[in-house]
């Protein structure tokens, strides 16, 4: 969304926006916590990008059921983290699973932000009846325990990647809308907004070009935190058997699948748990770092 906004800015401020963005990432170096977070996220991004190169096995190949960690496979490769009950290499599945989660989590977050920002901008800028209506709908959705909402929606429309994105958008957009609305209520009285109004700019131009870029700070921090939540959500749905359809690896699904054997083969569940926790930790630390910097500005 932010990118989209930038691309329609006039040339001079486009440069400045870019510079500002770069500067804030450079600033991240000053936050040790933020750097660790960025490092963790970057690690998984690289793993996901190079999955075909790194993974020792094909993630769905059924090779050696219940292999313990470190077992060598006749082909020369080793099951560093063992294999599951269908004989699929756990390390390879974790590596390929990072693709799944790093595709669906940002996608779902992006969708939620698109919807949430549009709702929030409209509610905050137009206020009045529209605001009341949107706020009421948002309250209704938010008053419902979020996981319950996921379970209900997914078990009704069926588990699939696109349905998970829809469910997450549906459940997260109201929260984003609230934040955006609050920011807009604050920003809409600024001089530059009044100036644009006098120039006769259209409402959506003012919302997207004048207001939104100035609200980006808190939104970026929130987006990082929300990415972490979405990773948890995808994991939990997989764990409850409502996740992405097999056979493609998904971390939560791996835990669920191997749990009946946990007593004898803890490696089947513990490693995917570590993977998912480290990615969430990455997003959370990144959000902390960004918040630290934005407070310093």
């Amino acid at each position: 969304m932010i990118e989209l906004v930038k691309s329609i800015l006039p040339a001079p401020s486009k440069v400045s926006a870019l510079v500002r963005a770069l500067r804030s990432f450079a600033l991240l170096r000053e936050s040790g916590v933020g750097m660790v977070g960025a490092g963790l996220v970057l690690f998984w991004v690289i793993v996901a990008l190079f999955a075909p190169v790194i993974a020792p096995f094909e993630p769905n190949a059924q090779l050696l059921p219940m292999a313990k960690p470190g077992t060598a496979f006749p082909g020369g490769a080793t099951f560093w983290l063992g294999a599951d009950q269908l004989g699929r290499d756990i390390l390879s599945r974790i590596i390929w699973g990072s693709r799944t989660v790093l595709f669906f989590a940002p996608l779902a977050t992006l969708c939620a932000y698109t919807v949430g920002i549009i709702m929030g901008l409209a509610a905050g800028y137009y206020r009045g009846k529209l605001d009341e209506f949107l706020s009421f709908v948002a309250n209704a959705i938010l008053s419902f325990p979020v996981l319950v909402l996921y379970v209900l929606v997914i078990s009704t429309i069926g588990p699939s990647g696109i349905n998970i994105v829809i469910a997450i958008t549906f459940a997260s957009a109201p929260g984003i809308m609230r934040i955006v609305r609050g920011l807009v209520l604050d920003l809409r009285n600024r001089d530059y907004v009044a100036a644009a109004q006098t120039r006769g700019e259209s409402s959506w131009y003012i919302m997207l070009v004048e207001i939104l870029p100035n609200a980006r700070g808190p939104l970026i921090v929130d987006a990082c935190l929300r990415l972490g939540y979405v990773v948890i959500t995808i994991g939990v749905l997989g764990f409850l058997g409502l996740g992405l359809p097999p056979p493609d690896p998904d971390w939560g699904g791996m835990v669920n699948f191997a749990r009946p054997l946990a007593i004898v083969f803890p490696h089947m569940t513990v490693f995917p748990c570590i993977a998912i926790s480290s990615l969430i930790l990455g997003f959370n630390l990144l959000a902390d770092g960004l918040r630290e910097i934005s407070l310093r500005d």
Binding site: S155, G241, P246
Partner: peptide, 29 residues
């Protein structure tokens, strides 16, 4: 549930692949 049914479908999907048959598995309660 029980899980052997989805496992059977997974194994089936793997075996159909070399012939050019792409089997998607729709797991439901």
């Amino acid at each position: 549930n029980p899980t052997w049914e989805q496992n059977a479908c997974k194994a089936l999907a793997e075996m159909l692949k070399p012939a050019g048959i792409d089997l998607a598995i729709n797991i439901m309660p």
